[in-house]
């Protein structure tokens, strides 16, 4: 793989990647999720990891954030091997990570305001008025300052995700992990989220990792793409280079073609034989 060679063009010089994954293998019961995966996530950029459903994209985020441990390989976040940390150190590191869950994962028994204030109240001893100021700033940045009194049940899916985003940046983390941020969104909230991810990344100097299968939206904001399938990195590069890839699989995925190397049909015996067999007496 030419990972590091490619990256030297995209990443800033004399700046090591924030996250390096080397030789990662992971399996769940009998199924192999990852096999010998290498990844580099540069600082200050938006890196997207894309692939068809079931390619283990969410699992990758859980591995990077230390929620689960790999079978083999090494995951380094900011120079620390995350799966060798004790719980205390891991929690210290996680204070510098934000994660946007697919469902938003807002605390259903707390209001929008209290949800955003949650990490501040847990990890700081700030006085109430300062917390209020900070929460309102975070809510303003996602455009939901007016919704602070609402309960999560009263929010639309897109709004819930924006509140969750405000909560994820409450402690001013160095990076944010986005799990399928665009899944199930209407075009307007999709547009809002795309804009938010981009502006937050630039304004706060964050490192963003997006896991998604929404090609068009992801390609629109990502600086760098990894395409994954069957537990391996199939291709990586900037959105422009991947759009003109010679690989038929990449072309099919990037342009959402119904048929290609990934067949439309699930493997089956020949159609005609199957039909005739069904008609025959058993």
């Amino acid at each position: 793989m030419s990972t590091s060679a490619t990256l030297s063009h995209t990443a800033l010089p004399n700046n090591k990647p924030l996250i390096t994954v080397r030789g990662l293998s992971f399996h769940r019961s009998e199924r192999i999720i990852f096999q010998d995966v290498d990844l580099d996530i540069p600082r200050g950029r938006i890196t997207a990891i894309m692939g068809p459903s079931g390619a283990g994209k969410t699992t990758l985020l859980r591995l990077i954030s230390g929620q689960i441990r790999p079978d083999a390989g090494r995951i380094e976040v900011d120079g620390v091997c995350i799966h060798q940390l004790g719980r205390r150190e891991l929690y210290q590191l996680r204070k510098r990570m934000g994660m946007l869950f697919q469902s938003g994962a807002l605390f259903t028994d707390l209001s929008v305001f209290d949800n955003v204030a949650f990490p501040l109240r847990e990890h700081t001893r700030l006085p109430a008025h300062l917390i209020r100021t900070l929460v309102l700033m975070k809510l303003e940045s996602v455009g939901l300052r007016g919704a602070r009194e609402l309960m999560p049940a009263e929010l639309s899916g897109g709004m819930a995700r924006r509140v969750a985003l405000a909560r994820a940046i409450a402690l001013d983390p160095m990076m944010i992990l986005y799990d399928e941020p665009f899944a199930g969104q209407d075009p307007i909230s999709m547009g809002v989220l795309i804009k938010l991810i981009r502006t937050l990344n630039n304004a706060l100097g964050l490192t963003s990792i997006i896991v998604s299968h929404d090609v068009k939206e992801t390609a629109a904001i990502a600086d760098y793409l990894y395409l994954m399938s069957d537990g391996r990195v199939v291709e990586h590069g900037t959105p422009a280079t991947l759009g003109h890839s010679a690989s038929p699989w990449v072309t099919q995925f990037m342009h959402a073609l119904p048929d290609g190397p990934v067949s439309f049909h699930y493997p089956a015996p020949p159609y005609s034989a199957d039909l005739l067999l069904a008609g025959a007496p058993a």
């Binding site: 204070k95 869950f101 469902s103 994962a105 990490p119 847990e122 990890h123 909560r167």
Partner: peptide
């Protein structure tokens, strides 16, 4: 609803 996981991600046990 991933509330427990998100809590862990916010470094809260």
């Amino acid at each position: 609803t991933e509330q427990l996981a998100s809590m862990q991600m916010m470094a809260v046990d």
